[in-house]
Nucleic acid binder design. Structure first.
Lengths: 219, 219
DNA sequence: AATTGTGAACCTCTTCACAGCT
DNA sequence: AGCTGTGAAGAGGTTCACAATT
């Protein structure tokens, strides 16, 4: 789950698309990739629903915000639908990531091959630790956090990944926003304040595991 | 965000508590810890709301499902509220985790100190790779995945963490459910099928980053 | 006959607004 | 006077049900 404090705003597709819808589109996309690999040609909303634990009406409604991709009576063409959803999700282009904070979590993210496989590439590493600055990771030099503004502006950064200690997170966020970053993936366990045109997604594993703890404590 | 296919069911607090409410309770708890460290004695719903990007009515409504913790005109006692929320979230007890799959993600999770700090302890490691079985990590022996049932039953496992490749995830889930596990933290990018009395929380970083990609692609 | 696309109904979650305490 | 606790109203998201299409 994710909190994000940007306002509802009009976009390419009229009114704001629900967060839950976007998340499901990603899941459908994953299912379509799987079906494509096993050379399935068409798929119904019923089948997509079954594989993702939702209703078929939900699947069709999710698609309907973006257009009409199926053929009545026949279903959806797997290849075509995958391509359409990929375009909607922006997966038809490469995205440049800046990693802010090359500690424990930062290193794990650099090793997390699924980002690379999905067109998300780290192209800038920043840290404030003098013992790290100047060192190389995967052929990339760790840059000084103090130069964030210049490095981000030069580096064509699309998405900034915040993996610094919680005390530094808001300060880093302000600097990123000042440098023009519009998308932030936040691993610090804190709610970040950003202007309405900046989107934040939060990854907080402790909150997720506490949810399980909550459920167990009820029983 | 997390999909989970268990039914609404009655619990200690009557009707099902919304997932979003549980997530916010974790965030309030974190805020209260912070306030406690800086020796703040009382806090208002307004202040908790401000620090978590929600409305004060939301904060009070969230609490109201569990009881009345504040004093009208005065606010909430930080220490007492933290203790109450901790109990609701099950953070007053230790939880035993089984890690299934000691690969890249698995290792990162073992190194993720925040779990230990929050009373979540790995006590069982399982893998199917013969070169890993029998090796020790942090003094713990990696056990054979084939013996999952016996190991889980002996090990007092509260929560199973699934960090195996996507192809193996459902099979592992079925085995865990068979062994009596009621709470699963799933890192495989797939929707798991479980009976109604088992809760699954999904951590899927690719879906989160694709959400950012979606937003950028709209602009 | 099968399956999509979608307005309307339904359900859930959030916010409002104010009575009730301190 | 200040702030909580909560029923009622409002907003948002999901499911129903059926006309439209292949």
């Amino acid at each position: 789950m994710s909190i994000n404090n940007h306002e509802r705003s009009s976009s390419r597709y009229g009114s704001k698309i629900a967060d839950a819808t976007v998340g499901r589109l990603s899941r459908y996309y994953r299912t379509l990739k799987h079906l494509e690999r096993q050379e399935t040609e068409t798929v119904s909303s019923e089948e997509l629903a079954r594989r993702n634990n939702v209703t078929s009406a939900q699947v069709r409604k999710d698609f309907s915000f973006f257009g009409a991709f199926g053929r009545r009576g026949l279903g959806y063409n797997v290849k075509a639908l995958k391509q359409q959803l990929g375009k909607i999700l922006g997966l038809d282009q490469e995205w440049h990531l800046a990693l802010v904070g090359v500690g424990n979590i930062g290193h794990a993210l650099l090793n997390f091959s699924q980002f690379q496989e999905h067109n998300f590439h780290f192209t800038l590493l920043l840290d404030s630790d003098p013992s790290k600055i100047g060192s190389k990771i995967d052929g990339m030099e760790v840059k000084n956090l103090d130069n964030l503004d210049a490095e981000v502006k030069n580096g064509h950064v699309d998405i900034a990944v915040i993996a610094v200690p919680v005390e530094a997170a808001q300060k880093v966020t302000d600097a990123l926003v000042g440098a023009g970053v519009k998308a932030i993936f936040n691993f610090a366990p804190i709610s970040l304040f950003v202007p309405p045109d900046v989107t934040v997604r939060n990854e907080n594993m402790v909150i997720e595991i506490e949810h399980l703890s909550f459920v167990l404590a009820q029983q």
